[in-house]
Amino acid sequence: MNRSRLALAAALTAAAALLVAGCGDPGGLRGAGATPTAEGPTHLWPDLPPPSAPAEDYGAIEAVKVTGVKVPGGDLHKVDPADVVRADFIQNPGTYEPSDTAYKKTVDRLKDCAADNSGGTGRCPVLKAYYRDLTGDGKDDLIVGISTPDDNLDIRVYAEEDRRLTQIMEMSDAVLGVELAGRDLIIRAISSLPGYEYHTVWSWDAHQKTMLPTSDEIVRSANASRPKSPRPSPARPSGSASPSAGGSR
């Protein structure tokens, strides 16, 4: 037996001794038992015929042009949010029907926004405006909330393109809170199920050129003891024949 084979034999003997000594080591590897068999998805009712028409959407499906409002230099920071909302509400009732009392009262209150800026009546329903690039074009978009007489919050988002104003999102709901996360708008709304609330994520869709509700979930409310009001009845968004996110799920 040559030197290399003698060295190999010695190494194997030492390794075997270590394995024997480690058999009683409580830190050694142990089997976890049998692994459950993975189950693939089970397709229910595979013979269902295809639907004859798509289900009704609750999100806006197209952008809406807003006329009569100039955007100096294409900068929405230079536009009065109340002027934008006033023009948009008149042209696009959105989730409301023009005959709705809440819609009529909101339009009436919007007339007082200019007076409020100089110490007026305080009836202006337009909340503080926020700005964020939601479309990814490098320019800030305008996010506006409007308090309506039916205790809902109407949320509208506007983008600018070629000095023209476009409404890219509109919804109305019994809103508990609104958050910005990156380029997403997250809306928390009251659920008809006591102790729960809806979380809806609205994201820019480059194909539709509008914000769409890309995620919608019902979660346990952090304030579960708070009494809940029923969600508003389904309504139709501007520029679409489909119910908006303010409608029932």
Rank of each mutant, 00 (worst) to 15 (best):
H77G: 01
H77L: 09
V79T: 08
D80W: 06
D80N: 11
P81V: 04
D83V: 04
D83N: 08
V85Q: 02
R86K: 15
R86Q: 14
F89W: 12
I90K: 15
N92W: 07
N92C: 02
N92M: 04
P93M: 10
G94A: 06
G94S: 06
T95W: 07
E97L: 13
P98M: 15
S99R: 12
S99P: 03
D100G: 04
D100Q: 05
T101K: 12
A102N: 02
Y103D: 08
K104M: 09
K105D: 12
T106D: 04
V107R: 09
V107S: 04
D108G: 12
D108V: 05
D108I: 07
R109D: 13
R109M: 10
R109K: 11
L110D: 07
C113T: 05
A114C: 07
D116N: 11
G119H: 10
G120M: 11
G120V: 10
G122E: 11
R123W: 09
R123A: 15
C124A: 10
C124T: 07
V126L: 03
V126Q: 05
V126P: 02
V126N: 05
L127Q: 12
L127Y: 01
A129L: 04
Y130I: 06
D133V: 08
D133I: 08
L134G: 00
G136W: 05
D137S: 05
D137A: 06
K139Q: 11
D140W: 00
D141S: 01
L142F: 07
L142T: 04
V144Q: 00
V144I: 09
V144Y: 00
G145P: 00
G145K: 07
S147H: 07
P149T: 02
D150M: 00
L153R: 06
L153T: 13
D154L: 11
I155K: 01
R156N: 00
V157K: 02
D162W: 01
D162T: 13
R163V: 04
R164N: 11
R164H: 05
L165A: 06
L165S: 02
T166V: 14
I168F: 02
M169N: 05
M171P: 00
M171N: 02
D173E: 09
D173W: 00
A174G: 06
A174M: 09
A174P: 03
G177I: 08
L180T: 11
A181I: 13
G182D: 12
G182F: 09
G182I: 07
R183K: 12
L185F: 06
I186Q: 07
I186N: 10
R188V: 05
A189G: 14
A189S: 15
I190M: 14
I190Y: 03
S191A: 11
L193M: 13
G195K: 14
Y196I: 08
Y196E: 15
Y196N: 06
E197D: 10
Y198V: 15
Y198N: 10
Y198R: 15
H199T: 14
H199A: 05
T200M: 04
V201L: 03
V201R: 13
W202Y: 12
W202I: 07
S203R: 10
W204P: 00
D205K: 02
D205A: 00
H207Q: 10
K209Q: 06
T210R: 05
M211Q: 03
M211S: 03
L212Y: 03
T214P: 01
T214Y: 00
D216P: 06
D216K: 13
V219Y: 06
R220V: 12
R220P: 04
S221G: 10
A222M: 11
N223H: 12
N223A: 14
A224S: 14
A224K: 14
A224E: 14
